[in-house]
């Protein structure tokens, strides 16, 4: 069931500006360092939940946020790998729709956050994206 929740989608533009600010003023390494910290602070409850409950915790998180943001996606398991395919990224779509500038490395934030969240919980991930199209494939699996 999808619950319609009012959200302020312009926040995507502000977040994107923050990433661009870090890259332009301090270099890409600083953007990566900030995102690594973000994964381990803001996403601490998700890390704990992933450790405790495994991939269903991540699956529920992704379904929840992409439903309230009205993204288009498919999610499934291929053997022991959780595969999340995004056909319409709500953030990219909103920024394009409103003609907001999009950080050159915007989609890197998903790759880095996924990687750091998984690493902290004993999992692994891969994120392949096409920023212009606003689509990506994210995969998650338990580290052997």
């Amino acid at each position: 069931m999808t619950t319609k929740i009012d959200i302020h989608k312009d926040f995507h533009g502000s977040f994107s500006y923050g990433l661009q600010f870090l890259c332009e003023n301090y270099g890409q390494e600083e953007m990566e360092a900030y995102l690594t910290r973000l994964a381990r602070t803001v996403y601490r409850p998700l890390i704990d939940s992933l450790k405790l409950r495994g991939l269903p915790a991540l699956e529920e998180h992704l379904i929840y946020i992409f439903n309230i943001e009205e993204g288009k996606f498919e999610i499934s398991y291929q053997n022991d790998v959780l595969v999340f395919q995004v056909g319409k990224c709500p953030a990219i779509h909103h920024m394009k729709e409103h003609d907001y500038p999009i950080a050159q490395k915007y989609c890197e934030h998903c790759r880095i956050l996924n990687q750091e969240i998984c690493k902290a919980a004993g999992y692994n991930s891969s994120t392949e994206y096409d920023q212009d199209k606003g689509s990506c494939t994210q995969k998650f699996w338990k580290e052997k």
Binding site: H8, L38, A91
Partner: peptide, 21 residues
């Protein structure tokens, strides 16, 4: 993706990060 529901926390963290570094 950092969702709009998580943005305020991410924004707060960016302020702290910038000041500390």
């Amino acid at each position: 993706m950092v969702s709009c529901t998580e943005f305020i926390m991410a924004y707060n963290e960016l302020f702290s990060y910038l000041e500390e570094h």
